[in-house]
Design a binder for these strands. Structure first.
Lengths: 196, 196
DNA sequence: CAAAATGATTGACCTAGATCAATTAGGTTT
DNA sequence: AAACCTAATTGATCTAGGTCAATCATTTTG
């Protein structure tokens, strides 16, 4: 059953009773997105948050000038979605695109609210989830300010060893806020150092 | 009573019953920090999170080379603290320094866990809190990557109109990841434009 | 296998913003 | 008002990394 990895994930975070887990599972819906297809586009009202069972996706913004900025990659066992749109009921500004054929589990906004009433332990689960996402983002802010491309790339590889070789370099460059050429040069310098 | 603004803040976010609020209030402790003094220093175990009743503070990291990076300013009605250290029980790496004489309310880690048991509505309150903090951080990431100093400064002034004139420019520059000189030049260009 | 995409690397050049070093402008203190 | 501090501004360089254009490398497709 596709729900397994998510149920495991919940169990690792909080002490949920079997009936809570069953209730949760009953509200999940499976979604498949083929490589290159979109899970989410701007100017839609976002009714779901998603958990990645299998695959790899990226979330990004496009500004008026067409500049793309990737804000997140997601692979197995990551949640993704447009939190802002989902929780604040504003239209989405985000693109979410599958970089590989992907399988996700979706939970509907209203179902989630009901779940919070019926099984408050999930209030805790999502609080913990967002807290650790917040902590990671703070680390990312720290490295995006002031650090060199080389340092940022090294930190990225440490933090996301699994993503590094599933996503093309120019996408990682975008995520780091560097040009593809810039990242390429940084990597060359790193290799040169290692050989010494 | 100093608790008022925080109780108001809670009421604005969640439907807490009067007894929940009393319980919460009973766990708060008032803390005063004079201008220039520290609320938190690195290598301490963090037992509290703080709500600003009055004043202004900054939170920053110092790396090995002594480079300072301000990750947050906080004024009235903001929470601050070292989430990472508080929730994960690791030693703090953060400095929190008062930029003005400040009054805060502190909640102890264990008391908070008890509160979550006794009044799960606070699980929700803190979930909502962290979620909106996460959303703001994501916006900040977006502007720290790729945007020019001028744009970043304008966004900062829009987002934090109240902080802009309580904090010296060189601190804002640091927060934005620019040198004080760089910010000064950006501001000059902005003024030049306005006059046209 | 040839042809066509797609991604990565390199070179030549160019700008935004850093750094260093004065200078100026407001506030405080005496 | 003189003397002091702290913050902000300005000028003169310097450099990391951007941009543009071309060349390789490696997959994918017919």
């Amino acid at each position: 059953m596709t729900h397994e990895p998510l149920i495991e994930h919940v169990k690792n975070q909080v002490a949920a009773r079997p009936e809570d887990l069953l209730l949760f599972a009953s509200k999940l819906r499976e979604v498949a997105v083929a490589k290159g297809k979109f899970l989410l586009r701007p100017n839609t009202y976002v009714k779901h948050e998603y958990f990645v069972v299998e695959g790899c996706l990226s979330a990004y913004y496009l500004d008026k000038k067409g500049n793309k900025t990737i804000v997140q990659f997601a692979i197995e066992n990551w949640w993704l979605g447009d939190f802002d749109a989902f929780y604040n009921g504003v239209p989405s500004k985000l693109y979410i695109e599958a970089l590989e054929d992907s399988t996700l589990l979706a939970i509907n906004h209203d179902d989630l609210q009901t779940l919070f009433q019926q099984a408050p332990i999930f209030e805790r689960y999502f609080r913990l989830l967002v807290t650790s996402a917040f902590i990671s983002l703070r680390k990312r802010i720290l490295s995006s300010l002031g650090k060199s491309v080389k340092e940022r790339y090294m930190e990225f590889c440490e933090s996301y060893p699994n993503i590094e070789d599933r996503v093309p370099n120019y996408q990682i460059a975008n995520y780091l806020g560097v040009s593809a050429e810039g990242l390429s040069r940084a990597r060359r310098k790193m290799k040169a150092l290692k050989k010494t």
